[in-house]
Amino acid sequence: MTGRSAPAVLSPSLRVWLGVIAALAALVVVVLGVLYADDSRPGLVDARIWAAVDGVGSPWRYVALATDFLGEPLGAATLVVAAVAGCLRLRSPRAAVLVVAGAGLTVGTTKLIKPLVGRTIHGDGNLSYPSGHTAFLTAFALVVALLATGRLGLGRTAGTSLVLAAALVAGAAMGWAQVALGAHYPTDVLGGWCTALAVTPAIAWLVDRMADWLVGQRR
Rank of each mutant, 00 (worst) to 15 (best):
R4F: 11
R4K: 13
P7N: 13
P7T: 12
S11R: 15
S11F: 04
S13T: 15
W17C: 03
L18C: 04
A22P: 06
V29N: 11
A37K: 15
D39W: 13
G43M: 05
L44T: 13
A52L: 05
V53N: 09
G57Y: 13
G57C: 01
S58D: 14
Y62Q: 15
A64Y: 02
T67Y: 05
L74W: 12
T78D: 01
A82G: 10
V84F: 08
A85V: 13
R91D: 02
V100S: 05
V100I: 07
G104W: 04
L112A: 14
P115M: 14
G118Q: 10
G118V: 00
I121E: 03
N126W: 10
S131P: 00
A135D: 00
A135T: 09
F136T: 00
F136N: 02
T138Q: 09
F140N: 13
F140K: 14
V143F: 06
L146R: 07
R151W: 07
G155H: 14
V163H: 12
L164W: 10
A166Q: 07
G171L: 04
A172N: 05
M174H: 09
A177M: 01
Q178N: 08
Q178K: 15
L181D: 02
V189D: 00
W193E: 00
V199N: 10
V199L: 05
V199M: 06
T200C: 01
I203V: 15
L206S: 13
L206K: 11
R209G: 03
L214K: 14
